[in-house]
Amino acid sequence: MSESTPSGTEQNPFTLPGFIISAALVLALIAAVAVIFFLPKDNSTAQPAPAAPADTSAPAAPATSAAAAGKSICGLPSSTETALGAAPRSTWELVGKMAAPTDPTTIGPGTTDEDGFRSCFAHSPTGALYSAMNVAALGSTGSPQLNAKLADQLLVPGMGRDAAIKEAAGMVAAGGSDTSAQVKGFAIKSYTPSEANIDLAFETSKGAFVHTVLSMRWMDGDWKVKPADDGVTFSGVAQLSDLSGFIAWSGV
Rank of each mutant, 00 (worst) to 15 (best):
D103N: 15
G96L: 04
I198P: 00
T64P: 09
N12E: 11
E81W: 03
P144C: 14
Y130R: 06
P13H: 04
K226G: 09
P59G: 15
P157V: 01
G160T: 07
D229M: 00
A61C: 01
R118H: 11
M98Y: 02
S194W: 07
S79A: 14
G245Q: 00
A49C: 01
I165F: 00
F19D: 07
S72Y: 00
K166H: 11
S244P: 00
S119L: 14
A151L: 07
P40K: 08
A31K: 14
F186P: 05
A86D: 12
M216K: 05
A66H: 10
S244H: 09
G8S: 14
F202M: 02
T105L: 15
L27C: 04
S143N: 02
A163C: 01
S44F: 08
A151I: 09
T204H: 01
D55N: 14
K97E: 10
T106D: 04
G110L: 09
T9P: 02
V33A: 15
G221V: 08
S78Q: 13
A100K: 02
W249V: 05
T80W: 00
A23T: 09
D103V: 01
D242I: 03
G158V: 10
N12F: 12
E93H: 14
T102A: 15
V156Y: 09
A151T: 07
K184W: 01
L154M: 15
S205T: 10
R217V: 07
K224M: 10
V95S: 05
P144N: 12
G231Y: 06
P104L: 09
L39T: 15
V135D: 04
L84Y: 08
V35F: 06
A86G: 06
F117G: 03
L16P: 02
R89L: 08
L146E: 04
S65V: 12
S235K: 08
G142Q: 01
A137C: 04
G127A: 06
D242K: 03
M171D: 05
T106L: 09
A54K: 02
S119H: 13
T192F: 00
